[in-house]
Amino acid sequence: MNDPAALLISVLTSAAFRLPILIAVSVSFVWVLGTPRSQVRSVAVLGLSLMAATTLLGLFANLVPQVMVAQGAYESLTGISRLMGWIHFALNLVEALALVLVVWALTRSLRDRALPPV
Rank of each mutant, 00 (worst) to 15 (best):
A24Y: 06
R37S: 07
V100H: 01
I21L: 14
V67D: 07
Q66G: 08
N92Q: 08
Q39T: 12
R18D: 04
E75D: 13
A15C: 05
V40M: 10
G34K: 14
L63F: 11
A73R: 15
Q71K: 13
V118H: 03
I23W: 12
A90V: 15
L83T: 14
R37N: 05
A53H: 00
A61W: 09
T54R: 01
R18C: 07
S42M: 11
T107P: 00
I80V: 11
L101I: 00
P36A: 07
V64R: 10
L7D: 07
P4T: 10
R41C: 08
S109E: 10
M51R: 06
T54A: 06
G58P: 00
A98N: 02
L115Q: 15
F29T: 03
A52E: 00
P4H: 02
H88G: 03
V67A: 09
R41W: 11
V45E: 00
Y74I: 11
P4I: 12
P36W: 12
A114L: 15
W31K: 13
M51Y: 03
N92A: 13
L63I: 14
T35C: 06
N2Y: 08
S10R: 04
G79R: 14
V103I: 15
L57R: 08
S38E: 09
L56H: 00
G58E: 10
N62F: 03
R18E: 03
L56C: 11
M68F: 09
R111H: 02
M84Q: 15
L19I: 13
L97V: 15
Q39G: 14
L19C: 09
L56N: 01
S81P: 05
T78E: 13
L101V: 01
L8M: 13
S109R: 13
A16N: 14
L83F: 12
S76Y: 12
I9G: 01
S76F: 13
S38G: 13
I23K: 08
A98S: 10
F60R: 05
L19A: 15
V27D: 02
V69S: 01
G58Q: 02
L93K: 00
M51P: 03
Q71H: 09
G58N: 07
L101H: 05
F60P: 06
N62G: 13
M51H: 07
L77A: 07
L19D: 05
G79L: 06
L48F: 06
S109F: 12
N92W: 05
L22K: 05
A73D: 03
D3H: 04
P4W: 10
V43K: 09
G58R: 01
V67I: 14
W31G: 04
V25E: 09
A15G: 09
R18Q: 08
R37Y: 02
T13C: 08
V100F: 11
L12R: 14
V94K: 03
I23T: 06
L33V: 08
W86R: 14
E75Y: 11
P116H: 06
V64F: 10
A96Q: 00
V118E: 06
V27P: 00
V45C: 03
D3K: 05
L101G: 00
V94A: 14
A44H: 02
R18F: 10
L97N: 04
P36F: 10
I9E: 05
